[in-house]
Each structure stands twice: as C-alpha cells, then as structure tokens.
Design a protein around this nucleic acid. Structure first.
Lengths: 342, 342
DNA sequence: TCTACTTGATCGCGCTGCCCG
DNA sequence: ACGGGCAGCGCGATCAAGTAG
C-alpha cells in the first residue's frame, strides 16, 4: 500500500543509465574503479529518478545498520533532554542515526526490554542517557554490544564505558564555596537517591563537609521537581541552617520560593546553591549560584567513545569524567550572623 | 565483526525445533493455523536460542518498517522536548518506533535533507515537532508520505495534518485576564517571529487587544531564552505599560528579573503573564501566571493521527486544535494607578 | 468426497560481497 | 583499472500439499 521512497531501486537506475546494478552500487557508495564519465552518467540517473538507497536492504546485505540506540528516562528533565539533541548531532556527523527508547523506571526488566528491542532493530551500540541507578547488564543479553552510559555499569566488560561529568567534584566545590563564605550549617536537598546522579551529588556534599571538618546538616530527598524542592525547603526552614546545597536548579528554585514565602531573604538570610546551570538560572529574580555541567560536551564525548567502540577502536579508560564548574551568582553570600570580615 | 542479535535466525530456530522456517515465522507473528503444541514447541526454541526477529529483513520482506521519523529543532526548548517523550511512548504503544532527526533552522534545504534522509530509512510517516515556520513541502519529495506537524503545511494534501494547541485563544485569554484586572497598556515580548508559535501568540495578543478595544503596546522580539526576555524587558521598562504578555515562561522569568532589577515590584508595579506553564513556573519567587499547554496530550494526538493516516484511515479534519488553559497565579494583579474596586 | 485446518517449498524484497571477464 | 554476473543477507507471501473429520 505504501509507496516506498518513490519505489526507485538500484535496478531502475541501472536500466535508466544502461549499466549494471553493481556499477550503480559502486557509484552510490563512492567506491573506486568507476570511470568518472560513468560515475557522472549514473549520478545523473540517480537524481533524475530520485533514487534513494533502501536502508533495510543495505543493512541486510552488509550486516551493518549504522544505528545507535538511545535509552533514556521518560521524564522531561533538563539534563537528559539537553544532551539528547547534542547526541543526535554528533551521531549524524559520525554517520549514525538514533533510535529512541524510553523507560519509565530503571528496573532491570524495563531496561532488558529496551535493550532487547534495540537489538532486534540491529543497533550497533547503545547509549544510556539520564539513567538512574547503576546498570546491571546481563552479559548474554548484550552479546558484546558496545554500551556508553552516564551511570556506572556493574560488569567491567571492555566495551562498556562510562562518560559522566564530575558531579562529586562539582558538589564539593559548591560546599567549599559556602564554607569559604562562613557557613557552617549546610543542608542538602537531594535528588531521588535511587539515581546515580543524586548519589554523586550527595556524596560530593558529604565530601566537602568532611574536607572542611563540618558536620553535615540535614538531607531531604526530592524528585528533581521544583515542587519537591519547595516541599523539602519547608521541611528544613527551621532546622537552623544558613545555606542549602540543592541537587538541581529546579529544586533550588522551589526552595527559594519556600524560603521567601517564610520571610527569609535570599541570600541575606539563606544561601542557596543549585546544580546544572539551566539557562534560566542566571535570570531568576535572585540569580542562582550553581554548578555548571556541559551537557553538549558530554553528549559529544559519549557518541565519540561509542563510535570508537563500535568501529573496534581500543578502549583506553572505562571512565571518562568531564569537568564541572561552579558559577557564583547572587543566591549565595555570607551567613547573617557572621560579622563582616575585611 | 559485529555479532548481530546473537546471529540467531529463523532457520536456526526451525532446525532446533524440527519444523519449517515458515512455521516459525507463523508462530513469531502470532498467525493462526498453528497447532498449540507446535506453537509451544517453537516458542521454547525461540527462548532457548534467544531468537530475535531481524527488523531489516522484515522491513525488506513486508515493505513496512513501522518507523516514524521525527524532525525537531535542535535547541532544547521545553515544549518540543517535553512532547518528545510522550511521542515515544505513544508511538511504542501503537507499535512504531521513532527515528530522531534535528534541524538547526527551518530552512527548506535543511528540512528537505531531513525528509530525504528519513525516506531513505523507510519511515512510514513523519512528525514535525517544534518546527518553526510554515512547512513548504515539495510534494514530489514526499510521495504521499503522511505528515503531522504543529505548524501549518503549505499544501493541502489529504495526508498532511496539523495538530496544535490553541495558542491564539490562550493568548487572547491572557489579555482578557489582564484587561479584566484594569490594565490598558499591555506590551508583548514575542518569540522569534519566524516561528509559527511566536506568530500565533502575538496574533492572540493582538486579537485580545482589539476585542477589548485597546491599542496594542510595544512588541519586542526575543528568542525564547530567559536572557532575551531579560533584555526585552529592559527595552520596554520605561514604555509606560503596566503589564506584559510574554510568549513563553522562560522569557517571562527573564523579564521579571529585569523589572525587579529596575526596582519594580511584581505584580505591584508590573503584571507579567507567561506561556507554557513549565513545571517550575508555579515555584518562582513570584509564582507565574501563565497559559498552560498539554504537551503530552498533543503528542499523543499527533501520533494517533499519524498512525491513522499511515494505516489508511480517513482524514476528517486537516487541523486539530487542543485547548489551552489560563492559570492565574501571583504575577498578575491590578495596575498600580487604578483605585481598588469593590 | 469434500471441507477445514495445518504445514512446507519456493521465491523475491533491494542491496552488496565475491569472483570473474 | 574497470565493469558485470551471481549468490545470499533474513524474512514473509504465495501456493501447493498434506492430514483429519
């Protein structure tokens, strides 16, 4: 029923230009051993007929699909989505196309389903973006398929690799910044702690606190949403802290709203530091101090590494950590009770 | 080099279970006319060998790929990305998978490239999500391929359909809300006016103004980013308006920041209404009055309509408009100079 | 005998790898 | 160096053949 690609095949082009199908194939694939004049002739027929190679037939004949499968969580969080488009661009440039799969939760069966589905589609590699917990990949299910993930992978297979940003370092830097301002009681609003990213950020906060010899303040677990940040902040507003390190910017916005509602001024009475540096963080009523991650760079690197694995390149490291950067804006300053230094 | 899906084929399963390949095919495709015992036997072999049908071979044999191509703009804007995941879920449920393509700009050649690429991959329909201007599709390039878009399509082909939210109505409603509060001088911060969505929202604003007999205030064009909203607001802060209708929430945040910086209070001195209802809009320091669009519903409807077109269903309308809803929060109230009524 | 159901053999989808002229 | 023939990638469609009632 369906007109496929105009229905023009190699054979049609061959007939139109008076050469064999194989020669047309050579021209289309830029192989050598075709005289320029013949090549020219064939190309003319190709454009005249509007020929377009059939990807399925090609995949069948070559045993290569040039497809990369992407598994991502279904929620429209900033990080995963921002990375997705960079992923697509990088893949395109490397000659691959992306097949998208979403999972609601990172449970093993859902992940296994997604991988199984992608395997059936013949993907040559899998990118797990914005996954939550550590990946427990059943080796048999993968059959040596290259995988690049932002979350750690339980097996140490040579073609499984992690590309992530230095979330622990970034979080610790946020704590050092606050401590440098004089804060000693610092709370943490965490992401859902079954997420690897949430654990990393909490661990970075703990690291920073211990490095500066401070007792960690309370930890409240949110779900990345502004609403959960709002609720978490209401829960700790009377806990006697002067600063909060929040695991992402959207929760930080909610927290600021909650504090403001209770009559606290930001940053006069309470300092807030976020994570991600979403584009609007700089343009909040109180511009947000936050930890920037370069999602585009991470995406490009991920695709680069995956393509290298697919094409049989050597796997040097099994962990690539991209730098994060503390961006100090207006939502953090000295605590209210500290006398002005200088 | 690449182990494909474990390399298990129909023939392997057939050999393992002692039936013909065709029978295995019947079982795998849930066709009738297979004895339950044979079906059982075959299924056992399928799981034992880890057989997975090869999508490329299937596509070649059936002339159907069950793939839907998605063309979207490369920028991580909230709307298009929020819809993307709903798209994927809906497509999956309908038995289709998504191949993602991004374009930097909506220029004809870029769109044509994307469509050409998708045609080569054998997609059975195309979803244009978050496109900018109207689509000028060259009919020959499409060969009757079903297309569902949020932007209008220049040709009136029966298998080209538009699914959008009622942005004009929503924008007009925002204006009526402001006018109802007593505002008479209302500016507009628009999106990039080569975007269909930006035009719709501006037109809705104009409509609302004319319906209420008011002169439209100044229009400044932004680029959807919070930064551009900030800059636009600085440009109109002294223009003598008491309210601004902003074409999306992120620009509205930037605008609020700019007004605040100039000493204006929101909403005391200036009312601001956004568009989209991003999740964090409710949790800004001044919760944002905005126009909500249901991206998930739009995505589901888009996929539904596209699948209907693909499967040869009748095309009733060529335009589906989903409702929008004004959500009144704290960023809008009476203008400062108006005496309190009641 | 005829029908209903179940199974198998052959072919071809569009393309590329191999080998030959 | 260049070009063509042939086979086959893995699957499903067609048609024929077999079995039982």
């Amino acid at each position: 029923m369906q007109v496929k690609s105009g229905g023009v095949t190699l054979a049609d082009v061959a007939a139109h230009s008076g050469v064999s199908a194989k020669t047309v194939s050579r021209v289309v694939n830029n192989e050598r051993n075709v005289r320029p004049e013949v090549r020219e002739l064939v190309m003319r027929s190709v454009t005249a007929l509007g020929y377009r190679p059939n990807a399925a037939a090609r995949a069948l004949a070559t045993q290569r699909t040039h497809e990369i499968g992407v598994i991502t969580t279904a929620s429209p969080l900033y990080g995963p989505t921002a990375g997705l488009f960079s992923l697509e661009q990088a893949a395109w440039q490397a000659g691959y196309s992306l097949t998208l799969t979403t999972v609601r939760s990172p449970s093993e069966p859902e992940l296994a389903d997604a991988i199984s589905y992608l395997l059936g589609r013949g993907v040559e590699g899998v990118l797990v973006s914005g996954a939550t917990g550590a990946l427990h990949l059943t080796p048999s299910a993968l059959a040596g398929l290259p995988v690049v993930s932002t979350s750690p992978i339980s097996d140490g297979a040579p073609n499984h690799l992690v590309v992530d940003t230095d979330q622990v370092g970034g979080s610790a830097a946020a704590v050092h910044h606050l401590v440098g301002l004089g804060h000693t009681h610092i709370a943490h609003i965490a992401g859902p702690l079954n997420w690897h990213a949430a654990l990393q950020r909490r661990d970075g906060w703990l690291l920073g606190m211990s490095q500066t010899g401070l007792e960690p303040g309370p930890v409240i677990e949110g779900d990345w949403s502004a609403r959960s940040g709002y609720e978490a902040a209401r829960a700790i507003v009377d806990a006697g802290v002067t600063a909060v390190f929040v695991a992402n910017d959207h929760m930080a916005m909610g927290a600021i709203r909650a504090f403001t509602e209770r009559g606290l001024r930001i940053p006069g009475d309470m300092s807030v530091v976020g994570f991600d540096d979403v584009p609007e963080a700089e343009f909040q009523m109180v511009p947000l101090t936050t930890v920037r991650q370069d999602f585009a760079a991470a995406a490009e690197r991920s695709v680069g590494e995956l393509v290298r694995l697919i094409e049989g390149g050597p796997s040097e490291d099994n962990l690539v950590l991209l730098p994060t950067e503390l961006v100090v804006r207006a939502s953090s300053q000295q605590p209210p009770t500290v006398p002005l230094s200088v």
